[in-house]
Computed example of a mutant assay.
Amino acid sequence: MSTDPETHPHVGCSIGADGRITFDLPPGSPEGQRLLLGLRPKKGQPEETVHVLDFEPAGERRCAVLDAHPVLAEGRWDVYLLPEPGAERQRVRAGLRDLRALVDGHRRHRPSPVAVRIPYMTKDGHLAVRAWLRTTHVEAEAVDVTGRSMTVRARLHGVSLQEGAVVSLGLRGAGATARTVEPRAEDEGRSLSFTVDYAELAGGTPSGAGVWDVFVRPAAQAPRIRVGRLLDDLADRKEIVVYPTADVGGAALRPYYTVDNDLSVEVGANA
């Protein structure tokens, strides 16, 4: 596999609201090339899952289409070019990415399973696709913070609120340690809002520092669903969407998005 960034071809892409991705080569690119998407394996493990696509003429360009089905497994998919049969594959540099169809994706209801794809540029400039595949999903549409609390407005996909529904905050690494909040149901149970009191979280963090992960249990006996923000054009939110820190009783609290774009609240000592 070629590792010289100067020799890597540029490939652009556009995505539709249904998740269909069209990859395009620059004008004048040679015929016979194919596109390969490889699911990035865990560290130390071999690559096992790939999709190979053919490029077809499209005016002056050549395009390869990844249809919405079958859905992609959850993870990060690296994009490569196969110049010709038997040739070494080449990592692809990110060209123009048209993600306009994803910007308001949180407004559209998604049936189960909830399948998400976001093309993005890696830190070293390569093209990749981030994919999520969830049976159900709770999308955080807005997080409003004050010096004492945070209020979250969210929409449920693939499920709706039923009797006995609660919002659950679990202290990471502390087993059954949890706090529950009563949700305010809207839109016939398809949307909700809830407010988390920072003082209660700070008081429930035994060591004075920890992370609370946010879930919704949509019915009394239902499995918990992680709250996150997946349905727009941001593949990685953690360093982009930053909420202010509140000082409560000697503790510093702030909501944040994890590396998986899930919503959590960090509790730490007040500097």
Results as ranks from 00 to 15, higher is better:
residue 38 G to Y: 03
residue 38 G to R: 05
residue 39 L to N: 06
residue 39 L to C: 06
residue 41 P to V: 10
residue 41 P to G: 08
residue 41 P to R: 03
residue 41 P to H: 06
residue 41 P to Q: 10
residue 44 G to W: 12
residue 44 G to E: 09
residue 44 G to L: 08
residue 45 Q to A: 14
residue 45 Q to K: 12
residue 46 P to Q: 10
residue 47 E to P: 07
residue 48 E to K: 14
residue 48 E to P: 05
residue 50 V to L: 15
residue 50 V to A: 15
residue 51 H to Y: 06
residue 52 V to G: 02
residue 53 L to I: 03
residue 54 D to Y: 06
residue 55 F to C: 07
residue 58 A to V: 03
residue 64 A to S: 08
residue 67 D to L: 09
residue 68 A to W: 02
residue 69 H to C: 13
residue 69 H to N: 15
residue 71 V to W: 02
residue 71 V to C: 08
residue 72 L to D: 01
residue 72 L to Y: 00
residue 72 L to C: 09
residue 74 E to L: 04
residue 75 G to W: 06
residue 75 G to Q: 05
residue 76 R to I: 12
residue 76 R to G: 06
residue 77 W to Y: 02
residue 77 W to V: 05
residue 80 Y to G: 01
residue 83 P to Q: 07
residue 83 P to V: 07
residue 84 E to V: 05
residue 87 A to V: 05
residue 88 E to V: 10
residue 88 E to R: 12
residue 89 R to F: 01
residue 90 Q to M: 13
residue 91 R to L: 11
residue 92 V to Y: 03
residue 92 V to L: 07
residue 93 R to M: 10
residue 94 A to V: 04
residue 96 L to K: 14
residue 97 R to P: 07
residue 97 R to K: 15
residue 99 L to S: 05
residue 99 L to Q: 13
residue 100 R to F: 14
residue 100 R to G: 09
residue 101 A to C: 14
residue 101 A to Q: 14
residue 101 A to S: 15
residue 102 L to Q: 10
residue 104 D to Q: 15
residue 105 G to F: 09
residue 106 H to V: 07
residue 107 R to G: 04
residue 108 R to D: 15
residue 109 H to L: 10
residue 109 H to C: 09
residue 109 H to I: 14
residue 112 S to K: 15
residue 113 P to N: 15
residue 113 P to V: 07
residue 117 R to D: 01
residue 117 R to P: 00
residue 117 R to F: 03
residue 117 R to L: 05
residue 118 I to S: 03
residue 119 P to C: 10
residue 119 P to H: 10
residue 119 P to F: 09
residue 121 M to L: 10
residue 122 T to L: 03
residue 124 D to I: 04
residue 125 G to E: 08
residue 125 G to I: 00
residue 126 H to C: 12
residue 127 L to T: 03
residue 127 L to M: 06
residue 128 A to K: 02
residue 129 V to Q: 01
residue 129 V to F: 02
residue 131 A to H: 09
residue 133 L to A: 13
residue 133 L to V: 08
residue 135 T to C: 12
residue 135 T to N: 12
residue 135 T to D: 15
residue 136 T to C: 09
residue 137 H to Y: 12
residue 139 E to T: 09
residue 140 A to T: 04
residue 142 A to K: 08
residue 143 V to M: 01
residue 144 D to T: 11
residue 144 D to W: 04
residue 144 D to P: 00
residue 145 V to C: 15
residue 146 T to L: 08
residue 146 T to Q: 12
residue 146 T to Y: 04
residue 147 G to S: 11
residue 147 G to Y: 02
residue 147 G to I: 04
residue 148 R to I: 00
residue 149 S to K: 09
residue 149 S to Q: 13
residue 150 M to Y: 05
residue 153 R to H: 13
residue 154 A to F: 04
residue 155 R to N: 05
residue 155 R to P: 00
residue 158 G to W: 02
residue 158 G to R: 00
residue 159 V to A: 13
residue 159 V to C: 07
residue 160 S to G: 04
residue 161 L to Q: 02
residue 161 L to Y: 03
residue 161 L to P: 01
residue 165 A to R: 01
residue 165 A to E: 04
residue 165 A to Y: 01
residue 167 V to G: 02
